[in-house]
């Protein structure tokens, strides 16, 4: 009650029914998933660092990521091991790995967040409409969902990208187009039970139309689940984008973790230049793992049955 911010009225001190899971407000509510979960807190700290790096990437990178560095005698500084000037060494093309990783952080986060947002937007609406209206609307939307669910991601993306522009925006669009069924299914199943709750009848009797019931009464109650899958979606998007770039189907002019590893692979020095591919590889692993742990923490709050203790 302390967070309510309102004084208890006199006479309201009577014994109360056992409190259901408390809906907290504002920051407290956002913090709730992390309370006592060390992995999630550590992930949050790690993520904060990456977000900081991503936001300030152009100022943090010591060099232009695609700039070639020359020695005094005019030769390219190819494959330097890490030094004070080039913290992560240089590439075969004499570029600074550290700067590339930093600039890649920004693109990874942007791709991840935008994809997850688009996926949530589509999945949430499809799930809401399918679950709420039922009938042929539900059948149509859910069969579509099943079809999309069955499309293998990488082969589809590769074929599509070879027909389209090789731009990061297309990669984002393709991933959002294939990721939303997960959110849609989760949301629909929630809506199926929510729409039978008496408070929906009550809203109807107050004169609320379908739109109002869907977006004011039902949607806020499914948002936690949709959000959880959005957080996982960030991780999937980052991995997938890296895979597409690694396979060489991304935009050759952007610097991302995937393209860095692609460069290592195509220059066939993987066994020699560990400093070139380990940093971007580790970044992918660390960031996606952090998003998974955070998503898991939110999921345990959104779905108490998963709680182990």
């Amino acid at each position: 009650m302390a967070d309510a911010g309102t004084p208890s009225p006199p006479g309201a001190a009577a014994p109360r029914a056992p409190a259901p899971p408390r809906a907290l407000r504002g920051w407290r509510r956002l913090w709730q998933p992390f309370a006592g979960r060390h992995l999630a807190i550590a992930s949050l700290v790690v993520l904060a660092v990456f977000v900081f790096v991503g936001v300030f990437a152009p100022w943090l990178a010591p060099h232009e990521p695609l700039e070639k560095h020359y020695q005094d005698d005019g030769r390219l500084m190819r494959l330097l091991t890490p030094t004070g000037d080039f913290w992560f060494g240089t590439t075969l093309y004499a570029r600074d790995v550290f700067s590339q990783v930093i600039i890649g952080t920004r693109s990874a986060l942007v791709v991840g967040v935008i994809t997850a947002a688009a996926m949530t937007l589509i999945g949430l609406n499809v799930g809401l409409v399918a679950g709420y209206f039922g009938g042929w609307v539900d059948s149509f939307l859910m069969r579509t969902t099943d079809v999309v669910f069955g499309v293998p991601l990488l082969p589809f993306a590769i074929v599509a990208l070879s027909l389209l522009d090789r731009s990061t925006w297309w990669i984002i669009a393709l991933m959002a187009m294939l990721f939303w069924p997960i959110t849609a299914r989760v949301v629909r199943s929630q809506v199926l039970s929510l729409r039978e709750r008496p408070f929906i009848d009550a809203a109807r009797i107050s004169g609320a139309g379908h739109l109002r019931i869907l977006y004011r009464h039902i949607a806020p109650n499914v948002m936690p689940q949709a959000f959880v899958h959005g957080v996982f979606g960030v991780a999937w998007a980052i991995t997938t984008e890296a895979s597409i770039n690694f396979l060489g189907f991304g935009d050759p002019y952007t610097v991302s973790w995937g393209t860095i590893i692609y460069d290592v692979f195509t220059s066939m020095v993987s066994f020699k230049a560990w400093w070139w591919f380990v940093p971007p590889g580790l970044c992918i692993i660390i960031v996606t793992t952090a998003f998974y742990f955070i998503g898991q923490a939110f999921e345990e709050v959104a779905n108490p049955r998963l709680r182990e203790r």
Binding site: P20, A23, R197, P198, D201, A202, I205, G207, N221
Partner: peptide, 22 residues
């Protein structure tokens, strides 16, 4: 129908389920 609800209202059996928790 919406205007009919200005004249006719209902209260439900379940005091927990009939109020939007949010």
């Amino acid at each position: 129908l919406r205007e009919y609800y200005r004249d006719v209202q209902m209260i439900f059996q379940d005091p927990y389920g009939s109020i939007n928790p949010r």
